[in-house]
């Protein structure tokens, strides 16, 4: 049987090519992202209520429970459900507070990138000419800079800190916003209603904010949701390398790094935070795809 005949693209969602359960599951979650939504809601709730939920303080060391295994493993106890790290700090509590750090870092850096990027995109698209030229060249230069190298040299020069982490992650996101918003602004400013607004005497700033910005909201939303996952991953990587939030503040990436020296005896320290990162990144990626399909199907990859 010839399996490879091409289905017309328009009918992609109407014709179900096979009835295999793998395909069905995939398509179901693509349409109804229940699991991703569940993961994200859990993350947000846990992050907000971290001090209420966590059984212990994330930084209180207890040498008696040093490297205590998870409750279900041999030698584990109910006091440390997921075990404890090399200083006897409760792993579950550290994961819960780590969720908070991840969410704060990602939200803050997304806001920075979004506001700066959108403003630059509006200016470049609306005013055009030299301002457009400068901003677009700036993007070219920025995208050609090896990002991680800048982070390395900054950390050595001024030390690792929370503002630095948020700053560099925010700086890594603005270019995408600028490009998309600029493109949209270029076409929007040709519209009749913008010309009418100008005839009616509206100032440039007013036209940009009142008449153009609202139309870019959906593309901004799509970009935001698509970038959330990669930012979580980037935050984890930087923290793992010791370039993120300074210790003892718990961050998923740095907990994985903590457990690295005790792999052979205490696998749980490194294992659980990694699973948390993986689940959250996966959830954000799925949710991002979903938001994109809903708000701006043109961006969808075939």
């Amino acid at each position: 049987m010839d399996q490879t005949s091409i289905q017309p693209k328009d009918f992609e969602d109407v014709i179900a090519p096979t009835q295999n359960w793998v395909v069905k599951v995939f398509q179901f979650f693509r349409r109804w992202p229940i699991l991703p939504a569940l993961v994200i809601v859990t993350l947000v709730v846990v992050a907000i209520f971290a001090p209420l939920i966590s059984p212990h303080s994330p930084n209180s060391a207890n040498l008696l429970s040093r490297l205590a295994p998870p409750a279900w493993a041999e030698g584990g106890s109910q006091t440390n459900l997921l075990g404890a790290d090399q200083q006897g700090r409760d792993l579950l509590s550290r994961l819960i507070h780590g969720a908070r750090i991840s969410l704060i870092v990602v939200t803050a850096s997304l806001w920075i990138g979004m506001i700066a990027g959108t403003a630059l995109g509006l200016v470049a698209g609306y005013f055009g000419k030299w301002s457009d030229e400068i901003i677009m060249r700036l993007i070219d230069v920025w995208l050609a800079v090896p990002f991680i190298m800048i982070v390395l040299v900054l950390v050595v020069a001024i030390g690792q800190s929370f503002p630095l982490l948020v700053g560099v992650l925010g700086a890594s996101t603005w270019a995408g916003f600028t490009r998309q918003v600029r493109g949209l602004t270029l076409s929007l400013k040709q519209a009749d209603y913008v010309a009418l607004a100008r005839v009616a005497g509206a100032s440039d700033v007013r036209i940009m904010i009142k008449h153009i910005l609202p139309h870019t909201i959906s593309i901004i939303l799509v970009l935001t949701s698509l970038q959330a996952g990669s930012l979580i991953l980037a935050e984890g990587t930087l923290s793992f390398l010791g370039l993120g939030v300074p210790p003892p503040t718990p961050s998923w990436g740095s907990i994985v790094a903590d457990g690295r020296s005790y792999l052979a005896t205490a696998w749980w320290v490194s294992l659980f935070p990694g699973i948390a990162i993986f689940l959250v990144v996966m959830a954000f990626n799925f949710a991002g795809d979903w938001v994109r399909d809903r708000l701006d199907p043109r961006l969808r990859q075939i």
Binding site: G229, G253, V256, A257, R260, L263, S270, G274, I277, N285
Partner: peptide, 10 residues
């Protein structure tokens, strides 16, 4: 979605 640093450790 899998963090490379964690994959390596696992």
């Amino acid at each position: 979605a899998i963090p490379a640093f964690w994959l390596g450790i696992v």
